[in-house]
Every structure is written in structure tokens, then in C-alpha cells.
């Protein structure tokens, strides 16, 4: 199910000006729904294990996942302001002049944090970390575990593709054809995500919660105000 969600996340990313898998005029809201359902799915994965460490992992993931999802929605709304539309193709078109990452500097780093926490990697690995013996994946082995690992990677690529199209002007680029640019940008973002995974240490869940609620969320409010003023 988690893999299907990741797949649907990628579906709305426009590959080139003409072709987009799912031409929804509410792309961002659909991405928000994907995030929310991911949190639900990972909780279920932990809870269904009916073991104490699985449940602890599931709860820690939900505790961190919900506030981070709020932050990501603010980022996306901020990106949608200059484009005056929720649809992703329009957002990418609006970046023809100037990429969003330059106009709204704060957007990309916070969105990458979301990417890490959505697929619980590196500093945000609260669901499957080693100190709770594999967390939600503690009771899973063989084929289901393979699918679970594949889904985590798929979600990471979905986030990278989404970030590339919303902040780095998806398929816009001088020489190469559209899709090539998108693939290039997604690959670079994946690289950034993976080294973030290795580099940063993970602080305890309660401190991370206070960090998110007291610093990152107000930061995303400011970002939204900044984008609003800019788009006036």
C-alpha cells in the first residue's frame, strides 16, 4: 500500500510541458493527501505487528510525521502563490522566469527535511531505527520486508521528484529536453537526501518534537508570509 502511495505521489509530477500522468488541477492537495495516508499506512504497519517495539516505532513516527506534514503543506502553498493555481504543471510553468528555490530560499531545505521524515531515513528514522530493534519492520521478513524497503525508496524518489518540480523548475532547462532535466534534478536531490541520511545524528523524539513545533513551524509561517508578500 505504501508503494502504491509513493507511486501516486510520483504520478502528479509533470514530466514535460505536455505530458503529465495525472493532470489534476489540485495537485498540491493530492500530495497532501498522499502524505497523510503515508502516515496512516506506516502506523498500521507498526501497529499490526502486535509487538511492543513495533508499536513504539509506529507511535514515534506519527508523533513526528503530523507536524512535519503541516510544514510541507505551508511550503507547497507558498510555492503555489506565484503560480496562482494548485496544479503542478502551472507551478512549473510559473518558474520559467525564476526558479522557486531562488525566490523562496527556505522552501527547499524544509521540504527535504520532510522527505527524510516521510521515508524515515537518517536523522528522522523514528519508525524503523535500530534502538527499537527494527521498529515497525521488526516482525517482518522475506517478501513483505522486501516490498517495505522498496516502498521506502520509492517514497524517497517521489519526494525528490516533487521537490525538483516545485522548487527547481521541474522540466525547465536550456539545452536538454524536458524529462532529462527532471531526471537530472531528481537525481541530484536524491544524492543530497542520501548524504543527509548518513551525516546527521538523530535526537530523541521529545526534543525533536519541541524543535519542530517551536522553531520549524514558525519558520514555515514566515516563509509563507514572505512568499505572499513577494507574490502580491
Amino acid at each position: 500500500m505504501y508503494a502504491a502511495l509513493a507511486g501516486s505521489g510520483v504520478a502528479i509530477v509533470p514530466f514535460s510541458s505536455a505530458s503529465v500522468l495525472a493532470d489534476l488541477e489540485v495537485g498540491i492537495v493530492w500530495w497532501g493527501a498522499v502524505e497523510a495516508l503515508t502516515v496512516v499506512v506506516v502506523f498500521l504497519h507498526g501497529w499490526s505487528a502486535n509487538a511492543q517495539f513495533g508499536l513504539i516505532g509506529a507511535y514515534r513516527y506519527v508523533a513526528i510525521g503530523l507536524p512535519v506534514m503541516l510544514i510541507s503543506m505551508f511550503m507547497l502553498i507558498a510555492a503555489a502563490l506565484p503560480a496562482e493555481s494548485l496544479a503542478l504543471p502551472q507551478i512549473v510553468e510559473s518558474q520559467r522566469g525564476l526558479w522557486n528555490v531562488i525566490r523562496q530560499p527556505l522552501g527547499l531545505p524544509l521540504f527535504l527535511l520532510l522527505g527524510l521524515s516521510l521515508s524515515f531515513r537518517g536523522p528522522f528514522n523514528y519508525a524503523d531505527s535500530a534502538d527499537i530493534a527494527g521498529g515497525t519492520a521488526a516482525e517482518v521478513s522475506g517478501a513483505p520486508r522486501l516490498v517495505w524497503e522498496f516502498a521506502r525508496l520509492a517514497m524517497l524518489t517521489a519526494v525528490a521528484a516533487m521537490a525538483a518540480s516545485v522548487f527547481l523548475g521541474g522540466y525547465l532547462g536550456p539545452w536538454l529536453p524536458g524529462p532529462a532535466w527532471l531526471v537530472l534534478k531528481t537525481a541530484t536531490l536524491l544524492l543530497v537526501l542520501v548524504c543527509l541520511t548518513e551525516q546527521l545524528a538523530r535526537i530523541s523524539p521529545s526534543r525533536m518534537m519541541t524543535l519542530i513545533w517551536t522553531t520549524l513551524l514558525p519558520l514555515s509561517f514566515l516563509h509563507l508570509v514572505w512568499a505572499g508578500v513577494l507574490a502580491l
Partner: peptide
Amino acid sequence: APYLGIATVFMMAVEMMVMAL
């Protein structure tokens, strides 16, 4: 009414999550 539909899905997912908690 795509906006309404997907907004419902979005909101309800989070609400049911909190309800499960």
C-alpha cells in the same frame, strides 16, 4: 468537485489518525 473531494480525504486521514491515537 475535485478540491472538496481530495480535501476531505486529506483532512479525514489526519483526523482518523488522531482518532486512532
